[in-house]
Design a protein around this nucleic acid. Structure first.
Length: 570
RNA sequence: GGCGAGGUAGCUCAGCUGGUUAGAGCGCACGACUCAUAAUCGUGAGGUCGAGAGUUCAAGUCUCUCCCUCGCCA
């Protein structure tokens, strides 16, 4: 039994995430976590909301709420959305909670001891009327490049260029609108990443289990040269720049920048998990305390790769403490909305809460896994969604379950029938099943989710093929025993179909396994002799058809949803 | 403008270190079956693998040039 630590990129606290975010980190991490649990491994799946930074403060302000209260509310909303999609986090923590604050301050102290953090004086915009500095998005003004009048302090939304707050012309405070601003000098802590370059490159070189997307991004950053970066901001909301509860002199009104504390949140959330479950977080994160046998797997969108392959490692490796660093890293491209971006303001795309409003989580889980943006960006379209759901879930899987159980109910009184002999059709099924099961397991293991879903679907299809060969409905007329072996094998195979479906569509799979009377502790990934697997159900066991597993998506649904969320015309 | 990822059947995509008639699912056509959510099973038609040139006995698969799409950054 292996120990596998899994983290998903942390969703930012600012609002419910859209399907692209789900598809690119939380969902595949969950599918992988579920698969590895079914294989009998000791899995710890950790996620958290990333709560610091100016977007959270500004969103809170515009909702007229205290930041903490805003984050409390948003955290609950995201937790519920995750529950709706059956995301099986062992813990869904918060970067604003105590463990992460302590860890962030710890890392800062250690890095400073190692000479990797320095105080440097910067020029920042200060608002006299607001009596505070205006970092990042707290100041807006005219873009010096394109003349856009409402460029933000960190970036111009019009031309896309990155800016420094002091670059803006005609700057004004986002808080009060005051133009009574001046540039003042203030000290900030800087992480000296330039000193870490060689160490990080060596670590990347040694990381053999990263896909090419991750490696190429990491090397791109290293080749361009790392920059020393400011890791503090003039804000109230964030991890205080303090040590042992005492603020660093001159930093009383400053906090660590979200960029620095967010990835530490993986560790912080594990600590939260430990506190809530009487667990030992250090055995997952400290190689001197038991984590040396842990395999750490990270899931993220491609925009996050640099932070996970360079920035966060700078913190981890720079500390020279025995922290666990990532072993396998799975990066996703974008799920697009008809080839373009998801956009709240332009009514393009479905957000997690809206998706659940329309259909249960399993429908989305299947689509987003079978159509995962792995090799390249992949486009969501309603037609494609309808096609996958109706064909794969309703017709191939759902109809199989229904046809077998209903036939069994009408001919064999809804119990697993006895009688009949194992024969050539059953041999055929066993052989096909073996080959496909092996392939499916390999693809899940390799985190090739599209291929894994293809294997799962192919195994479902095997059931229907088998029935065509065994044709119990014909045999029943002349030889009920010959029909019985067909139905019995079909029922046994249904247990396999459902077990392998568990990582992707856990709820529907549970419904099937419940109907078949499979105990909770007998639902592991199918392993062993095919014939044994196909003869496991005790004859006489009651098996009742469940409610329709998957409702088909009608044309009228597609029209209504296209209208509501945008579609081809967008 | 630089960098990155791509351009493979109508659609969505597979095709590792170059090697027999380029694959899958959907869609389409035809056939079979009737237990089932008008579901299922089988067969088939469809591609000069973005364009051009080169390397090689042999190239979606390597090299160069060009065109187009998406993203990141100037």
């Amino acid at each position: 039994m292996a120990r596998i630590l899994i983290t998903s990129a942390l969703p930012y606290i600012n609002g419910v995430k859209h399907l692209g975010n789900l598809a690119g980190s939380m969902l595949p991490a969950d599918v992988y976590a579920r698969f590895q649990r079914l294989r009998g491994h000791d899995v710890l799946y950790i996620c958290a909301t990333d709560e610091h930074g100016t977007p959270a403060e500004l969103a809170a302000a515009s909702s007229d709420m205290d930041v903490r209260a805003y984050c409390d509310e948003q955290h609950d909303i995201q937790k519920r959305a995750g529950d709706g999609f059956s995301l099986s986090y062992d813990y869904f923590g918060r970067t604003s909670n105590a463990p992460n604050i302590e860890l962030t301050q710890h890392f800062a102290a250690v890095l400073e001891e190692k000479g990797l953090i320095e105080e440097r004086v910067e020029h920042q915009v200060f608002s006299i009327d607001d009596d505070r500095f205006l970092p990042d998005r707290y100041v807006e003004g005219t873009c010096p490049h394109c003349g856009f009048e409402r460029a933000r302090g960190d970036q111009c939304d019009n031309c896309g260029r990155l800016l420094e707050p002091t670059d803006l012309k005609e700057p004004y405070s986002k808080i009060s609108g005051s133009k009574n601003l001046e540039v003042r000098e203030t000290a900030h802590l800087h992480l000296i990443q330039t000193k870490m370059e060689g160490k990080i490159r060596a670590w990347v070189d040694a990381s053999t289990e990263w896909p090419s997307l991750a490696k190429s991004i990491a090397y791109k950053w290293l080749d361009e040269g790392l920059r020393d970066r400011s890791i503090t901001r003039d804000l109230k909301w964030g991890v205080p720049v303090a040590k042992d509860g005492v603020a660093r002199p001159g930093f009383e009104t400053k906090v660590f920048y979200v960029w620095f504390d967010a990835p530490i949140g993986y560790i912080g959330a594990t600590w939260e998990w430990a506190e809530a479950n009487n667990g030992d977080w250090e055995s997952w994160w400290r190689t001197d305390k038991g984590a040396d046998d842990v395999t750490y797997v990270q899931f993220m969108g491609k925009d996050n790769v640099a932070f996970h392959t360079v920035s966060f490692p700078a913190t981890i490796l720079g500390s020279e403490e025995p922290w666990k660093s990532v072993d396998k890293l799975k990066a996703f491209n974008w799920l697009t909305w008809y080839g373009g971006k998801f956009s709240t303001s332009e009514n393009r795309g479905v957000f997690m809460d809206q998706a659940l409003d329309i259909l249960p989580g399993d429908y989305w889980r299947w689509y987003l896994t079978a159509n995962a943006p792995e090799g390249s960006d992949s486009a969501f379209t309603w037609d494609h969604f309808q096609s996958l759901i109706n064909k794969d879930l309703a017709d191939v899987l759902g109809n199989y379950v229904n046809r077998v159980l209903r036939f069994n109910k009408s001919r064999f009184e809804a119990v697993v029938p006895a009688g009949g002999e194992w024969g050539e059709h059953e041999d055929w099924l066993a052989g096909e099943m073996d080959a496909r099961l092996k392939s499916a397991a390999e693809n899940f293991e390799a985190m090739e989710f599209r291929k894994a879903a293809g294997d799962v679907r192919a195994i479902w299809a095997l059931g229907n093929e088998y029935l065509t060969r065994a044709e119990p409905w014909t045999k029943f007329k002349t030889d009920p025993d010959a029909a019985a072996i067909g139905v019995r094998t079909a029922l046994n195979f249904m247990t396999v179909m459902a077990k392998i479906a568990q990582p992707v569509i856990p709820n529907a799979a549970a419904t099937i396994l419940d109907a078949l009377g499979i105990a909770e502790d007998e639902r592991a990934w199918p392993q062993g002799e095919a014939k044994t697997l196909l003869t496991a159900l005790p004859t006489g066991q009651s098996v009742e058809p469940p409610e329709v597993l998957f409702k088909k998506i009608e044309e009228a649904d597609i029209e209504a949803w296209s209208e509501r969320f945008g579609g081809a015309e967008g």
